[in-house]
Design a protein around this nucleic acid. Structure first.
Lengths: 340, 340
DNA sequence: TGATTTTACGAAAACGTTTTCGGCTCGTTA
DNA sequence: TAACGAGCCGAAAACGTTTTCGTAAAATCA
């Protein structure tokens, strides 16, 4: 149980001053060859590592970034974190994770916990509750203290900070058009309630695609689901109410795979009778039966970009460059068995 | 861009000393009612929050725990983190995450990065490479410095620290027996190579279950897969080579769902012709078609237990209680469509 | 030899806390 | 009135760094 080695202890053991040790370890010209060697060897032998807390305090930089997301048990968020972690580590940063569990209060508490010096900057995706409340005072507070924020996926438009998003409208439009090109005449959409940005935007893209081809938007073909845990009944009713339905755009994997299952049970063939395109290229799409054609959101890439942007901002010292950027990450349509 | 408020600034503004401010904010009896009120109100108005880095340095405690796992894009690990985070936050701790990506070197580097004062203790699940090398010097080093370690799932038996595992042998045995009770006569297992603990133990449990019922273990019915990315071909060959196969135990979801797909394609009916039980109760099992009967590893619970154990150890000051515990978390068999 | 520069090191401040201890100003008591 | 005890507050140390500045001794130069 060797006590953790510090400069002070090395100094005592070698009968020199703390400053000498510090300088020797940083190869300062002020220290003689002889003393330097001695100190460096001693440090190496006993595996000295500078205490990062002390460094943080001195430098007023923690080399840590905080990330707050609604859930981690969610493939998309997990990939984003993976991307963040990779880039951050590469640049010598560590990642602290907090989960809001889709709760506004937890999001606020977590931000306060992290903003008291624990980290240098934030990456976050807002909770559903925050989106519906449109209350962003906690973000403003943090920003006022000079801490940069990068938001991804679920962003607050009028908050000063970089944003990494996908073009939901275009992506949904392309997905819808893709189905129509496959000769599907009655394409519906399984979406979420409108206060969730992605739900609203994807529904919009869906509508735009229809209109571009001169197809009238039929509200019966739009299902907005609030409670994801009980989507089964809603989707089943939706399917029963729309017997002519032959194409589905789903804003997430779960809706898609649920629909797929219900359809199969009802004797419909996929993709011949009904084709399906899902957002989020996760495990479910890849391995479900039939596998699903999806719109990949490239979460890993998003995470990487978010981390790179944040760290850039942290390491450029002139703050005058106050232009915030919104990066739109390309989506990719991955064709699988659920479309012809 | 208000500068972050410190004790010093409050002291200057209110023309008192730093110590007075500190004491006033901690409700010390040494400070007069009047001064205390004044300081507390000022602090509240300008939203003073003590700097956590300074506190860490002073107290020699960071109130942070580090967690190193192979991958985060993996349902089981994600649930564990979720459990860790929940319990940790409840007790005022934050969670720093590092990913080893199944690489020994990255695991070592990450541990060194965290062990220099960033955290108070570790929770980890070892990388595959570490397991195959059986090189645990990095763990020993950290422990020697007095930092407690809690391992889960992939643990190193002879390292002093708490361990949270499931009883793989029993779980696999129960799964196998479950299939046999369903009148399956030729049950095989899709496993991993032996240096992965869980693979070895689950294979052992499988064999024990057979032997208990007087069935001879047939090596042809045991498939050990090394490269998870190309499991398709191996599994297909395995199925072709064993035409009488009517039950499968898979050590993870992916193997199970892959087998399920191949079997379906070959015209076999699940569960009538072949029944399947998978380890890991994740998205795939729940939503694949047919849904899979699984052995839930209760990752959320494991994470919670790991966090609680670690924090307990951190907060008990007398180190004499050096008895390390191995907690065996109960698995749960969740019946779905892939078994009769 | 005396003056000046170079070499090599140490003292101290700073980052933001908490806490111990010392001390000043009252009012109370002998 | 002198001594003493509250009551109230500030100075300083400590946590582990880095860095600026000061300075003694040694080396160089005139």
């Amino acid at each position: 149980m060797a006590q953790k080695l510090t400069l002070k202890k090395i100094a005592q053991d070698l009968k020199v001053s703390i400053s000498t040790v510090s300088k020797a370890l940083r190869d300062s010209y002020e220290i003689s060859e002889e003393t330097r060697k001695k100190i460096q060897e001693y440090a190496k032998q006993y595996n000295y590592k500078p205490n990062s807390i002390a460094l943080s305090l001195k430098n007023q930089k923690t080399k840590k970034i905080g990330i707050i997301i609604p859930e981690i048990v969610h493939h998309f968020f997990a990939t984003v974190i993976s991307g963040v972690e990779h880039v951050a580590n590469e640049k010598g940063y560590q990642v602290i994770i907090c989960l809001s569990g889709e709760s506004f209060d937890k999001e606020v508490v977590n931000m306060e916990m992290l903003a008291n010096g624990s980290i240098d900057g934030f990456i976050l995706s807002l909770s559903k509750e925050t989106m519906s409340k449109q209350d962003f005072h906690h973000l403003r507070e943090v920003i006022n203290q000079g801490m940069p924020i990068v938001m991804f996926d679920r962003v607050a438009d009028d908050i000063p900070g970089d944003k990494i998003i996908i073009d939901d409208v275009t992506a949904a439009s392309e997905a819808t058009d893709f189905l129509m090109r496959k000769a599907k005449k009655n394409v519906g959409i399984l979406s979420t309630v409108d206060y969730v940005n992605v739900g609203r935007l994807r529904t919009q893209g869906y509508s735009e695609a229809l209109m571009k081809r001169g197809v009238e938007v039929n509200q019966d073909l739009i299902l907005k689901i609030e409670d994801i845990d009980h989507c089964d009944e809603l989707i089943e009713k939706f399917i029963d109410n729309n017997p002519s339905l032959d194409g589905i755009v789903a804003v997430n994997e779960l809706f898609a795979v649920t629909a797929s299952k219900i359809l199969t049970r009802k004797g419909k063939r996929i993709p011949d009778d009904v084709a399906i395109v899902a957002f989020t290229d996760g495990m479910l799409s890849k391995y479900s039966n039939p596998s699903l054609t999806t719109i990949g959101q490239n979460g890993y890439e998003m995470g990487g970009i978010a981390a790179a942007k944040l760290i850039d901002r942290l390491e450029q010292d002139q703050k005058d460059e106050e232009r915030y950027e919104t990066v739109i990450v390309k989506t990719s349509l991955i064709e699988r068995e659920s479309t012809p």
